[in-house]
Amino acid sequence: MMEQTYNPMTLPSNDNVNAYSFSVDLNGQWFITKGAMIAYYGNITFQAVTAFASAQAWVAAKFSSPVYIHDWVVAEGQGKLILGDRGFDINSYTLEDGNLTIKANNLLAFDSNLELKQSIVPGFVTLIGSGIFLASSNGPVIFVEPPFRADPEALLGWADVPSPSVHHDAEWMTRSIMASVQGAFGRASGEEKQYDFTGQGTILLQSSEAVRRDNALMRLVESQTDLLAPHQAGQLGQRLVARAQQANQ
């Protein structure tokens, strides 16, 4: 049956409304991804970060990540702002002079007290400082502690742990070559490579998803192909096309 009706007084202040949406008690500025706004009460304006960047140097300082800047909006004003992301689970994280690295495509919003930086691991961003941020995930987030090896598609982020290294399952590779498994030299199924975490801290995981369109990641990877000589770039292009065709089968 229908649950209770909400109004600006009864909507939570900086808490989930349900597993898939979050109510921000806005009194100032928050960075949100384009498309995250579901509804709001009050007086709130939304402007693309790029519109701000030249006028307000501090926004540029927060956003030292040119690859991702195009997907962000500044929400400013007073009221209750409800955010969501395609029906995915939303969780809020409070940092107290800390840092947390999260998959860029899953970062939904953060208050303007936090700083955002691009991580060395492609596709991830690091949030630094004290404040709240929101991340979406495919199903509830699973927290595990190191030592742990995570499938790259399932890895959502990590906190307080040193950046992971890449572990190649040598035994799997050997056996698969012996068994002439198709695609032994490519990424056959995912079990042959994981991100390896050691030390202390927390790792965040989610059920691996069909690859979500991450335009920023594509821009990032494309910019890295500048390192290739023209004929190499052509060869890479052909392999990528073949991969896309195989995935469609």
């Binding site: 229908m2 649950e3 909400y6 597993a19 898939y20 579901i38 509804a39 009460y41 709130i44």
Partner: peptide
């Protein structure tokens, strides 16, 4: 609905603004 429905009250005191897709 794609995710559980959220009912929002509308009154003279508080109009609401909603994303068309939502």
């Amino acid at each position: 609905s794609h995710g559980p429905i959220i009912p929002l009250e509308v009154s003279g005191q508080y109009p609401v603004v909603v994303d068309p897709d939502a």
